[in-house]
Amino acid sequence: MNKAFRISGLILGAVLALGQLQAAGAEEVKFAGAASVVTDLVAPHKAQVEKTTGIKLVVDKSNAGKGLIDLIDGNCDAAMASASLDATLAAAKSAGLKKPVPDLKLQVISKSEVVFIVHPSNPVTKLTWEQIKEIHTGKIVNWKEVGGKDLPITVYTDAKASATRGLIKQTVLANAEYAASAKAVDYVKDVNDKVALDPSGIGGLGSGFVDAGKVVVVGTKKLERPLGFITVGEPSAKVRKVMEAFKAASR
């Protein structure tokens, strides 16, 4: 009986060792960058994509600008981007990109929406893009100017290296600069949390980060943005395989 157990133990050990060797030799694809891509695209489908492709996904969540720098520095296989290539590149320059820009390719996998939020006590529930622009650039500084309370406006924005901030600047602000008084946060989710605590606050962020129980989404023109991956040149075979699997999973 003891001998049989020993043999079974040896067999089990061999199987486990083989599994570990196979796992160690498994292909990997490393992504770095936009938190919005992680929340809205990668996290919901990661397990399915790994199962479909047999490729392990290593995900470094930060922001689009840092992700693009990581790509150019060779620290990842693809950068996660939540805005156009131009907006993402601008975010990378804000994050300190100094190197020459290589041939970058953006593969759009899906889309999501950027929205603007206010505190639940704020009676202003609709704004035009022009009003949002003037609020973010400092031309409108009090809520009473747009039908609200006599209360100074506080603008919260994602980090300067964020593609979401870059997209808002490019699309809604028509490339005008944010007011110097705008408060940049470290992480995009912090925009929701800051506005939830501040009756004077407003901020733009991906819809996936909105906590509907704590803030109110302002009615305005729809602002869509791409979610995808950037590579230097055409993606490698394994990266392309993963991209195609994400496309299929997100349909």
Rank of each mutant, 00 (worst) to 15 (best):
D198C: 03
D211K: 03
K222V: 08
V15A: 15
E244N: 15
V216Q: 05
K238R: 13
K183W: 01
A184Y: 05
K149G: 07
T157A: 13
G201D: 01
A176P: 01
S200H: 11
K98C: 06
L97E: 04
A182D: 02
P100Q: 08
L97V: 00
A87P: 02
L151S: 13
Y156Q: 00
A14L: 15
V188E: 14
A179Y: 10
L16N: 12
K238D: 03
G213H: 09
G19S: 12
D73I: 06
P44R: 08
W143Y: 08
T88A: 08
A176L: 14
Q22E: 15
V215H: 03
K221D: 07
Q22M: 15
A83D: 02
R240D: 14
S250E: 11
L167C: 10
V49F: 09
D73V: 07
T171G: 05
V188G: 06
W129N: 14
N192D: 13
V210N: 04
I135M: 08
G13W: 05
N2L: 15
K3Y: 11
G19L: 10
F229P: 00
A91G: 05
L89A: 06
E244K: 15
G147Q: 09
F246N: 04
V38A: 15
V37L: 10
K105Y: 01
A35D: 07
M80Y: 13
L18H: 09
I132P: 07
A174E: 15
K169L: 10
V29S: 03
A47S: 12
